[in-house]
Amino acid sequence: MNGVPAPLLYAGPNQINFQVPWETAMGNASVVVSTSAGSSLPTTVNVVAQAPGIFTYTGNRSVVQNQDYSLNGPNNGALPGQYVIVYITGAGAVTNTPADGEPALGSPLSHVKGAVSVTIGATPANVAFAGLVPGLDGLVQLNVQIPNGVAAGDYPLQVGMERFRATRRLITISQ
C-alpha cells in the first residue's frame, strides 16, 4: 500500500487477506498486488481513521466468545452480567503499536486510542477493554459486559467508534 509491503495473512486464487500497514496515511491509498507472475495495476482505496467491522460466521452472527470461552450462538447464549469477547478489526490507532505483521504483546497491552461503544439491542453495554489480541496482528478484541435486565433472545450487536459504526450482527442472550 503506497509502496509499503503489507503483511499477508491469506492468499487464494480470488482473495487475499492482509494487514493494512500501520503507517498508511488517511485518504486515498494505492494498492498493488504482486505475485510470481508480476504486478497488478494500482487500485485506490479510501483509508479512514476507524472502520470497525465485526467478524461473523454463518452470515450474520457475531464472532463472540462467552465467559466460558465457548462460541456464542443460538443455543449458547451469554448471561446478563457476564463478560463476553467480541472480535473486530478496523479500530484504528492503538497504544504500543506493533510493527507491521508483528503480533501484539500481552504486556504491555495495545489499547484502542479512540472511544469505543457497544450496544446490545438498544441497551448500552460496558466495554471493559478494547485492544489488540495479544499474539495476533490486526485483530481487536472488546471485553464487553452483558447489561443486566436484557431478556433472552437474539439481539443486534453494534460497535461504535467516534462517528463510525460497524454493521450490526447478532448475539444471543440467555437467562
Binding site: 493494512v20 482505496v45 479512514v48 490507532a93
Partner: peptide, 8 residues
C-alpha cells in the same frame, strides 16, 4: 473503507 493496522 479501511483503517491503518486493520485486517483487509
Amino acid at each position: 473503507s479501511i483503517a491503518a493496522g486493520s485486517l483487509a
